[in-house]
């Protein structure tokens, strides 16, 4: 167990180094001259050289990388050009909105996707299997930003079932102060139920659309894991002992599948954070994705790279957690 954890930590450290190498490299190859951006094009060669030395661009690359790495490890991503606040401060402010969206999407994806995968496996080749296969194929093939627009057109503009873009109606702004940063949770904590429902109806559509995409993946993986389990002899044995098929499938076989599903769910959550970039743009959702997109178009490289590192770290962290949870849910992995 300790050995496993040590190996997992080492691989996390290596991946983190790789990630920062890439972001450092991107920061270097960008066609904008950072010195020129500070001194302007009328500055003398002397001033140019002085500023260049000041921000450390005359140092050898490995030294520059080391400086960058130390800063990142201290949570220093530099200042955002647009908001002129530290990038980390900005990121911490927008991240809860993305987290709220991704968590509800994950919940939808797992709660609907796992049973669908199980049903597809137990009805292999029958119409249930075909329908579920078709649904997940659609999920794989739809551009998420387009699905978002169609959803807005249909459920918001035409049917009026949900609220439109944004997190809250203007009338509800600033009623509850941020505690967790997730409006639905904060409003419940404050006992402001009206705000909660407004936030919920704003959240439901983007979360459902993201959730549908993760559902496609979760259902497909659950199906193939379940098929492998249903072929095992213990299934036959429990059936022979007279256990109801329902119990065999949903308790015994699915119980063993959860182990593998943990990894799938962790990876799904990572891809939800990515999908958020496009979804947030469509729904004007003030989260990490929208922040990144806006920074992109204002050439705010510090902010873009800071957000990239943050998403990368969450991604790597999820991989590690799923690696470490594995032996907790699967006793067999503990002995190895």
């Amino acid at each position: 167990m300790a050995n496993r954890a040590a190996r997992s930590l080492l691989s996390v450290a290596l991946t983190f180094l790789g990630l920062t190498c890439v972001t450092f490299f991107i920061g270097r190859v960008i066609p904008i001259d950072p010195v020129l951006a500070i001194v302007g094009d009328k500055a003398s060669a002397e001033t140019y050289a002085r500023v260049r030395a000041e921000i450390g661009l005359d140092l050898p690359l490995p030294v520059q990388y080391w400086r960058y790495l130390t800063k990142v490890l201290h949570g220093d991503f530099g200042n955002s050009v647009i908001t002129s606040r530290p990038v980390l401060h900005d990121l911490l402010q927008v991240f809860p909105a993305t987290l709220e969206l991704a968590l509800l999407a994950l919940l939808i994806g797992v709660v609907a996707g796992v049973p669908m995968g199980v049903i597809a496996a137990t009805h292999r080749g029958r119409w249930q299997d075909q329908v579920i296969r078709f649904l997940s194929l659609l999920g794989y093939s739809m551009p998420v930003f387009w699905l978002g627009l169609i959803g807005l057109l249909l459920f918001y503009a035409k049917l009026g079932w949900v609220e439109g873009p944004g997190r809250l109606d203007v009338a509800f702004d600033d009623i509850v102060g941020p505690v967790t940063g997730m409006v639905t949770i904060d409003s419940l904590l404050a006992g402001e139920y009206e705000v909660f429902w407004n936030a919920f109806w704003h959240l439901l559509l983007p979360a459902s659309i993201l959730g549908y995409l993760s559902l496609a993946y979760v259902a497909r993986m659950t199906r193939s894991f379940m098929l492998a389990q249903l072929r095992q002899e213990y299934v036959l044995a429990t059936l022979a002992k007279g256990l109801s098929p329902w119990r065999v499938v949903w308790v015994h076989a699915l119980g063993n599948v959860w182990v593998q599903l943990v990894t799938v769910i962790a990876l799904t959550f990572g891809s939800l954070l990515e999908g958020a970039v496009l979804t947030e743009t469509v729904f004007a959702w003030p989260g990490l994705g929208l922040y990144m997109k806006n920074s992109l178009f204002n050439a705010d490289l510090n902010a873009v790279l800071g957000a990239t590192v943050l998403v990368g770290v969450v991604y790597i962290g999820l991989n590690m957690i799923s690696d470490l949870i594995y032996p907790l849910v699967d006793p067999r992995a503990r002995d190895q």
Partner: peptide
């Protein structure tokens, strides 16, 4: 282990 779209975004931006 990298987030694909986010990294592609950062590259495209750079």
């Amino acid at each position: 282990a990298f987030p694909r779209l986010v990294l592609a975004l950062a590259f495209a931006a750079a």
